[in-house]
Write a protein that binds this DNA or RNA. Structure first.
Lengths: 111, 111
DNA sequence: AAATCAATTGAACAATTGTTCAATTATGGA
DNA sequence: TCCATAATTGAACAATTGTTCAATTGATTT
């Protein structure tokens, strides 16, 4: 962007995905970047839950949970379906739990 | 946290990691939550690079890159080593690229 | 020693984020 | 219909974030 930067090497093509795709990636991964949302995702790993149940378990107001669930829905980390008066939320697919699992491994294996 | 929330079920134990551990998880995953940082991680997937090279490839100022590399270092997504005047950066381990790979899969399989 | 290139840092600023509170929508039961 | 429960929404606010700019540190060469 600005400097010289003597690269001895032949300036190999970077082979990056297009910015558009990277933006999608960022959108998705951004959803994992908050303490409350991670907590919500972890409890959803166990079983489907309603917002009011999540609220009790993670210790957040129902409103705060609803706001976070909206983020998780919009970025496709969770699915949901209505059943009577309630709405049940679940992890969207195995990618989501795979990322949680890998990340947990990473922070657990440390000096 | 606040309401009643009639759970018909026997209030199964949540079985969550301690908040401390979740905080570590969040710290780690937060580092994936920015467009520029993801771009940096993606180019580091190909090979070790110096900040000035990264700057040219991703189109950010050297300063901005350095600031982001500090974040990535602090949260242990990248390693680095000095060689003469330069400092080379690389992904910390396979967990990091595994997460990128899984996330890329997730955004690629669209419905 | 000075000069040069590379990398890091700190302050400042706009932009974004997560929560609370209050109001609103949705569903089912009396 | 009205009421109770569940969920969502919007505005507001403090807190955090990412970038730029300028200054500084580090390592090598002459």
């Amino acid at each position: 962007m600005e400097g010289n930067c003597d690269t001895g090497k032949p300036d190999q093509p970077p082979n990056l995905p297009p910015d558009e795709k990277i933006a999608e990636l960022a959108e998705f991964l951004e959803a994992f970047s908050d303490f409350s949302r991670i907590k919500i995702l972890l409890v959803l790993q166990e079983r489907e839950l309603r917002p009011c149940e999540i609220s009790k378990i993670v210790g957040l107001s129902v409103s705060a949970v609803a706001h976070q669930l909206r983020v998780l829905r919009d970025k496709r980390l969770v699915r949901y379906f209505r059943e009577g008066k309630s709405v049940y939320y679940a992890l969207d697919d195995e990618h989501v739990s795979a990322i949680l699992k890998t990340a947990l491994e990473h922070v657990n294996e440390r000096r």
